[in-house]
């Protein structure tokens, strides 16, 4: 098991937005999370990645307890999230967005810039090469020099995935990767995600597009009002009456 969330709880006032949620993602697993709006899915991501502090519960990754580790440390440990509304460094170019996320750079210190320029130049070349490789993989190479703020919604989703890849993440939490993305791009994005899973990257994916999601994941969790109400193989989970009730309502019957 790569990521194990156990008993995560977060309350605002009296409202338990995430209520005692436990789930795990294996190292090359594709795991989905669905649920109605406001079910607490995005909050769960925030708790897992340290973006928000949980009231109780633990987060462990690769057997290491990360509960007390801040967001930067969790990202460095290899666990990175994307956002429902894509976020990017708007004034940085697409390539710079990716390069900024590369870990362990010698040139992060100001002193190194003056005293080890050679080492930094070599490292920059390596990072730039990796960024270009990632851009090609995501078919974003044509917009490499464009300020990221000018990308289309779908391109920004790809950029988020790219940034997560650049951190060297071994587990990526995708928050609605297909929302606002055209069907052709959804197919491509799914193919990319499958490729990465084959290479040992785990994914936890929140998505409302059930058709695309169920074709991708092998395990599906359903959240409703902060709680986990069902887990298992997608087809079995979707057939459960409680899930049809809570999530699909009458409309999808």
């Amino acid at each position: 098991m790569t990521l194990v969330l156990s008993g995560l709880t977060k309350a605002y006032g009296g409202l338990r937005v995430v209520d005692n949620v436990s789930l795990s993602v294996p190292s090359d697993g594709l795991v989905g999370v669905i649920g109605p709006n406001g079910a607490g899915k995005s909050t769960l991501f925030s708790l897992a990645t340290g973006f928000l502090a949980a009231d109780s519960g633990t987060v462990s990754f690769d057997g290491r307890d990360l509960t007390a580790v801040a967001a930067t440390g969790r990202a460095r440990a290899g666990m990175v999230r994307t956002f429902q509304v894509p976020r990017e460094f708007t004034h940085l170019t697409v390539r710079e967005n990716l390069m900024a996320a590369a870990p362990g750079q010698a040139g992060e210190g100001l002193l190194a810039v003056f005293f080890r320029p050679g080492a930094i130049a070599a490292e920059e070349r390596a990072i730039a090469a990796r960024a270009d490789e990632t851009l090609a993989f995501l078919r974003l190479d044509a917009v490499a020099a464009t300020p990221a703020g000018r990308l289309s919604g779908g391109q920004k989703k790809l950029l988020e995935l790219g940034r997560a890849l650049m951190t060297g993440a071994r587990l990526i939490l995708l928050d609605e990767p297909f929302a606002g993305v055209n069907p052709v791009l959804i197919e491509e994005l799914s193919a990319r995600i499958r490729d990465l899973a084959d290479r040992g990257v785990g994914f936890l994916i929140i998505e409302h597009d059930l058709r695309a999601l169920t074709r991708l994941v092998s395990t599906l969790h359903v959240m409703d009002r902060g709680r986990l109400i069902a887990s298992g193989a997608p087809a079995a989970v979707l057939a459960e009456p409680a899930v049809r009730d809570a999530y699909l309502g009458g409309a999808a019957a």
């Binding site: 973006f51 967001a71 930067t72 990017e88 460094f89 900024a100 951190t167």
Partner: peptide, 29 residues
């Protein structure tokens, strides 16, 4: 330079920088 890029990234979106693994302390120093 890498540190300059990270400084601009933090100026742009500090929260995104944090979850991208950019260490805020070094950037601030």
């Amino acid at each position: 330079t890498p540190i300059g890029r990270q400084m601009r990234a933090v100026a742009d979106d500090p929260d995104l920088a944090r979850v991208s693994g950019i260490a805020p302390r070094r950037v601030m120093i």
